[in-house]
Design a protein around this nucleic acid. Sequence first.
DNA 1: TTAAATCTTTACAAATTCTTTACTGTTTTC
DNA 2: GAAAACAGTAAAGAATTTGTAAAGATTTAA
Lengths: 223, 223
Amino acid sequence: MSGKHILIIDDDIHIGDVLKEILDREGYRVSRAYSGTEALFVLSQSKPDLVLLDLMLPGLNGEEVLPHIKGLPVIVVSAKVDIDSKVELLLGGAVDYVTKPFHSKELLARIAAHLRNAAISASSPSLIFKDITLNTDTHMASIGENEIKLTRTEYAILKLLMQNPGQVITKSLLLDRISEDTPDCTESSLKMHISNLRKKFREVNGKDYIEAVWGIGFKMKSD
Amino acid sequence: MSGKHILIIDDDIHIGDVLKEILDREGYRVSRAYSGTEALFVLSQSKPDLVLLDLMLPGLNGEEVLPHIKGLPVIVVSAKVDIDSKVELLLGGAVDYVTKPFHSKELLARIAAHLRNAAISASSPSLIFKDITLNTDTHMASIGENEIKLTRTEYAILKLLMQNPGQVITKSLLLDRISEDTPDCTESSLKMHISNLRKKFREVNGKDYIEAVWGIGFKMKSD
DNA sequence: TTAAATCTTTACAAATTCTTTACTGTTTTC
DNA sequence: GAAAACAGTAAAGAATTTGTAAAGATTTAA
């Protein structure tokens, strides 16, 4: 164990203590936060390698904390069985759940797996869908040899779509996600961004990779 | 690496050897085929998780091999820059290209990405009733190979029926639920939606999966 | 500060979906 | 058996939604 940094967000001091004990013994470096606001503060100060999150925080506004742990692997430790799928999408897939009561062995295995995955995806920082590659470092897309320059918003949209290939992403979710960067994004401007994205692909190879799902949202074409 | 099975179809022994060497080192299980006919045989015996295909096979009749690898992710390894669009259609979507000469790192990244995508779409959440599958990610129904595009309201109705297979769903409940999406849904329009749903199924295999319960509502046929 | 890039709005055509109307046939009720 | 209520489908019009262009507003970069 190479002293990876793990942040525990849990208001229950007892459970948090147990978690810390387990992780300490494995050689992880552990931080604690006991509320949503404290978690925000910790995350603004340092970037842990993985987050253990209890969703049942007092007065937690999920949407307040989640943007700040985006990009990190998150393991939700919760008694709740079904998690809002919105949470999952916002985090971009790197979510896992461990329901209480849990076995420490299982928890440790999951942590190790996620840390390994994170290491792998960091070494090849790109999303692939069909022949589109989206480089998350340069924020550029490419199809074969052709590089496509994306604006910030176009990148955010395409990334969300490509992280969930074939799945419908609702317009409201797209708007939520995008409005972190550009606060006034409405449905009409979303339409425009999609239109502009399509045009850029069309100029390269004439294909259309994005499909509208009438009344719901958009998805990457599965055909 | 969990020993995923990759089939290399390439007549060029040298290139095939290089590929195999690269994949072996990553812990993949590798099969080889040196011609179209041999590929057919291998594919009839086992189903790999991914196929690496050199299109320049001697005497290859693309149309002979391609139907057998439909449904699997395929990466075309080729010197040819532009691939015949017909090939792409036959492959049914999951195509990617790596042009020779290629970097092993890039190839491995693409393989990993496609295997991951395939794993996701295989485990995607869906409702099953008889031979109908309703995918809640893509909002599409499918019967065997046939995909059925549903409108928002049709999806909502079918989902409600399939979540309670064999149980009668009252018309008022259907209307309640549906009116979240389409506020003015009346009994006559509900009739139409049901009718349209049936028609879509009928066009695929002639069967009728929905049964009216006189004066009460509808249910999936239990026969 | 100016120029360029990006984002948002407006407007409108095209496409899709939803609802209504009308009509036929079936089932229940009286 | 006749009247009433319900089920099924087709066709057409209404309502929504999508796609794109053009132009104004805002942000970013030079």
